[in-house]
Measured scan of single mutants.
Amino acid sequence: DRIFMTRTEALEFLLKAHQTAVDKIGHPSHKQTPADHAAIEALDRLLLDVRARRVDQFQINASAAQIIVTD
């Protein structure tokens, strides 16, 4: 599946995904793992790359739809 978004929409989408990941590892019942921190770092890099126009398409994980940034 493909989803087309403007750059602004894609950045909002990534910010929400980032916040969800941060909230998940901050929850008291969740045991933090290196994979959790790696996922947040990957989202940080992706946010910067989309914002800087170095990336025009991405996929958060293998089961997610491919996001295509349109400007």
Rank of each mutant, 00 (worst) to 15 (best):
T70Y: 12
E41C: 08
D1T: 03
D56A: 10
A21C: 05
I68N: 04
E41F: 05
D49H: 05
R7G: 01
L46N: 00
Q57Y: 11
V69F: 03
T6K: 04
A35G: 10
A10I: 02
S63M: 12
D1I: 03
T8M: 12
R7I: 08
S29Q: 10
I68P: 01
A21D: 01
R54P: 01
D23M: 05
V55F: 02
L43C: 02
L11R: 01
D36E: 09
R2N: 06
T8Y: 10
A39T: 11
L46K: 01
T33C: 07
I67C: 02
V50F: 04
Q59K: 11
V50I: 06
T33P: 04
D1L: 01
L14Q: 00
A10V: 04
A38T: 07
V55H: 01
D56P: 02
A21K: 04
Q32G: 14
T70P: 02
V22P: 01
T8W: 13
I60R: 01
R7C: 03
S29F: 08
Q32I: 14
E41Q: 12
A39V: 13
R45K: 13
A35L: 08
R54I: 10
S63E: 12
S63P: 05
T8D: 13
V22F: 07
Q66Y: 15
G26I: 10
V55I: 13
I3N: 02
Q59C: 05
I40V: 11
T33N: 13
L15E: 09
R53S: 11
R53C: 09
A62G: 15
I25D: 03
G26F: 15
E9S: 04
F13I: 05
T33F: 06
M5C: 03
D23I: 09
I25R: 05
A21Y: 13
P28V: 08
Q32A: 14
T6H: 03
V22A: 07
K24M: 10
L46I: 05
L46T: 02
A10Q: 00
T70D: 11
I25E: 04
Q57G: 06
R53V: 04
V69K: 01
S29D: 14
H18P: 00
L47I: 15
D49I: 03
A62W: 06
T6W: 02
Q66K: 11
M5E: 00
R54Y: 05
L11W: 04
F4G: 02
K16A: 11
I60F: 05
A64M: 13
F58V: 01
D49L: 15
G26H: 15
A35D: 12
A39Y: 15
D36V: 05
S29H: 10
H37R: 14
A10L: 02
T20P: 01
G26S: 15
Q57E: 10
H37P: 04
Q59N: 05
D71C: 05
T70I: 15
R51D: 05
D23F: 02
N61A: 11
I67G: 01
L15G: 06
Q57H: 14
E12L: 12
Q19I: 09
E9Y: 02
I25C: 04
H27V: 09
I68L: 05
A38Y: 11
H30N: 09
L43W: 03
R54M: 06
A10F: 01
K24R: 13
T33I: 06
I67F: 05
A65S: 12
H27A: 12
K24I: 09
R2E: 04
F13R: 02
E9F: 03
N61W: 11
H37C: 07
L11A: 03
H27T: 09
L43H: 00
A62M: 09
R2G: 04
D56G: 09
A65Y: 13
D1G: 03
S63K: 11
I67V: 10
K16S: 07
K24A: 11
I3Q: 05
H27L: 12
A35S: 10
I25N: 05
H30G: 08
H37M: 14
R7H: 07
I67R: 01
H18R: 15
T8N: 12
A21H: 08
Q57V: 14
I60P: 02
M5P: 00
V22N: 05
K24C: 05
S63V: 11
T6P: 02
S29A: 12
R2L: 10
R51L: 13
D23W: 03
Q57F: 12
I60H: 04
S29V: 07
I3C: 05
K16Y: 08
T33W: 07
H30M: 06
D36A: 06
H37Y: 14
Q66F: 15
P34T: 08
H30W: 10
I68F: 12
A35F: 10
I3D: 01
K16L: 11
I40Q: 03
V69S: 01
V50M: 03
Q32F: 13
R45M: 07
V50R: 01
A39Q: 12
Q57R: 14
D23Q: 11
E12K: 11
L47W: 07
T33S: 13
R2Y: 11
N61G: 12
L46E: 00
K16P: 00
R53A: 10
E41Y: 05
A65K: 09
L48Y: 06
A52I: 06
A42H: 13
I25P: 03
N61S: 13
A39H: 10
T6S: 10
I68H: 06
Q59G: 03
L15K: 14
I25Q: 05
R53K: 14
P28C: 06
L15C: 06
L15M: 13
L14W: 00
L46G: 00
L47V: 07
I60L: 12
R53G: 15
E41T: 09
I60Q: 02
D49A: 13
I25M: 12
R7L: 13
A35Y: 10
P28A: 11
A64F: 12
E9Q: 13
I40H: 05
L14A: 00
A64C: 06
A42L: 14
T70H: 09
E12F: 08
G26D: 09
A21S: 04
P28L: 09
V69P: 01
H37S: 09
E41H: 12
Q19A: 11
H18E: 01
T33D: 12
F13N: 01
R53D: 06
T70F: 10
